[in-house]
């Protein structure tokens, strides 16, 4: 089909219609609108820091440490908590999820208790954990661990329960023993579900570390938010929020990359 667009070019290859141009422009319109809104709101009221103010605060933050910790130090502090908790959650979560997903009796015995504890949001553990362990590094990691381990256990269990019967038949036809049935048949079947669980766990962990830091810490990006709030330094709050958003998004990208690495067969389709 040959079509002619606004500029009179023959669109033999691309078929660019006026509609396509509008679609192309729309995202810029909306982002422009967002920036304009930010500019207007911050110029009318003092309740929202302006763009220039925020940018200057960002530059200042790069130079001047808060609580003797430089900006990147706060980021690293948060990341360290997340990574340690996440690694522990992956090991414990997959082990426990496999136990209750593979053995029905263990599922009844441990699974019921787990199901009672599961609906308690990780943040609700903060008071109990701080009353026991204070406000050091370990209690924070423990809270993040609780937030991260639950989705991993749930996904591992669900992944093992939804292994297709036909693969188990193949396992039986080729005389796999129980161990091979689990490691060579069931676990690979469940891997995409487990990886999805780890992805959920990563974003949960990032959220929890933030809240835990806001509720009592001397370092970390969550601490920067509360610090800004306490000092009535709203540009700092906004810088911290943007940092949190960017790192959260980066963590998402990294987990997706890891997913492609772990499940190479998922790429072909």
């Amino acid at each position: 089909m040959v079509r002619t667009d606004k500029n009179g070019q023959k669109g033999e290859f691309k078929k660019t219609t006026p509609k396509d141009i509008v679609y192309f422009i729309l995202p810029f319109v909306s982002i422009g609108f967002l920036l304009l809104l930010w500019y207007r709101v911050s110029s009318i009221t003092s309740l929202f820091p302006g763009m220039v103010q925020t940018y200057e605060r960002f530059l200042l933050l790069l130079e001047k440490p808060i609580m003797r910790v430089p900006f990147y130090g706060h980021i690293l502090a948060s990341l360290k908590r997340v990574v340690i908790a996440l690694l522990a959650a992956i090991v414990v979560g997959i082990a426990f999820g496999t136990l209750i997903g593979w053995n029905k009796k263990c599922d009844s015995f441990f699974g019921t208790v787990f199901n009672f504890i599961r609906p308690i949001p990780p943040l609700a553990w903060i008071p109990l954990i701080t009353i026991t362990f204070g406000i050091g590094e370990f209690p924070k990691i423990l809270i993040v661990f609780i937030g991260a381990v639950i989705p991993i256990v749930l996904n591992t269990r669900a992944g093992l329960l939804s292994v297709e019967q036909i693969y188990l038949d193949v396992g039986q036809l080729f005389d796999a023993n129980r161990w091979q049935m689990l490691w060579e048949v069931a676990m690979p079947c469940a891997t995409p579900a487990i990886v999805a669980g780890i992805k959920t766990a990563t974003s949960a962990a990032w959220m929890v570390v933030l809240a835990a830091e806001m509720l009592g810490a001397k370092s970390g990006v969550g601490f920067l938010v509360t610090r800004g709030m306490d000092a009535n330094d709203m540009p700092l709050v906004l810088v911290a929020m943007i940092t949190i958003g960017v790192i959260g998004a980066l963590l998402g990208v990294i987990t997706s990359l890891i997913e492609r690495l772990i499940c190479p067969w998922m790429r072909i389709k």
């Binding site: 929202f48 959220m207 806001m214 709030m229 709203m234 929020m241 949190i244 959260g248 998402g252």
Partner: peptide, 15 residues
């Protein structure tokens, strides 16, 4: 743009 920012971190501004 807004999605990656956890809702918890909006608390100070909202207050």
């Amino acid at each position: 743009i807004i999605r990656p920012i956890p809702p918890v971190s909006w608390i100070p501004l909202t207050i």
